[in-house]
Computed example of a mutant assay.
Amino acid sequence: MTIEINLLPWREEVRARRSKRFFLALGLMAVLGLGGGYGMTWHYEQQLEAQQQRNAHIQAQSRQLDTAILELSELEAIRERMLEQVQVFTDLQMGRAQTVHVFSDLVTSLVDGVHYTRLSREQGSLRLVGLAENNRQVSDQLRALAATDAFSVPMLSEVETGEDGQRRRFSLSMSQHMPAGDPGENAQEVP
């Protein structure tokens, strides 16, 4: 007698259990994959949001720095203008004493028979036009101007005989400088 064992239902049952376990594992893996993907997406979104906040903070600080730099450059421009004004005032103060000194030296060095018809001043240069009775007086006037502390050696540009034939019209130029120990220099230091 032979016993016949039909293993087909058992195999079907094992196969069904394996299929069930496979699909359960497949579903579990899909859920884990979707959960992991969602978790990674959330994590990256959080990092992106944090980076955007840092970027916004840096941009805000950069705008504040730009504003501060603009204010600083405006203040520097104001400072430069004020320094220029102070320099102008200083030059005017120095020039005031120097102008008095120049006129004083011009008057004290004036030779008899010579008089000035025109005086012009440009920066540190002085140009004189005058009349003299003869060439000797022109030469004496040049020596007298060279002997002063306020002027350099004068340069005679021209000497011509006037319309009356008697007087000599002369033109000369010289540079001016403040002599050492001038009271105008000390006046500036006093508050």
Rank of each mutant, 00 (worst) to 15 (best):
V31A: 13
A97L: 04
F170M: 10
L92I: 13
L32G: 15
L32T: 11
W10V: 10
S109D: 07
L70C: 05
S125T: 15
Q98D: 06
D164V: 04
G39I: 00
E49M: 06
L142T: 05
D164G: 14
L7V: 11
V31I: 08
L72D: 10
S62A: 13
A50I: 00
L48E: 09
A187E: 11
Q188A: 05
F103K: 09
Q141F: 04
I69E: 13
V159F: 00
R54S: 06
I78F: 10
Q123V: 11
M29W: 10
E45M: 04
Y44G: 00
V138Q: 01
S120M: 02
E13R: 14
Q141T: 14
Y116H: 08
F103S: 12
V153F: 09
R136T: 03
T2F: 04
S73K: 13
G95M: 03
G165W: 00
E76Q: 13
L48Y: 12
Q141L: 03
Y38P: 01
L156S: 09
R18N: 11
F151Q: 07
E12C: 08
V14L: 12
G36Q: 04
G33I: 03
V138D: 00
P183W: 06
S62R: 08
G113L: 01
S157Y: 03
F23N: 14
M178C: 00
E189F: 05
E80C: 05
L32K: 07
W42L: 10
R21F: 05
S104V: 11
V111W: 01
V129M: 07
L75P: 06
R168I: 03
D91C: 00
S171K: 12
Q52S: 07
Q59H: 10
L34F: 08
T148H: 05
S139P: 01
T67W: 04
L106E: 04
A132Q: 03
R54M: 07
G184Y: 06
L28E: 08
E133W: 00
T148V: 03
G37E: 03
M174D: 05
T108Q: 14
Q52Y: 01
E13Y: 08
L48R: 07
F23M: 09
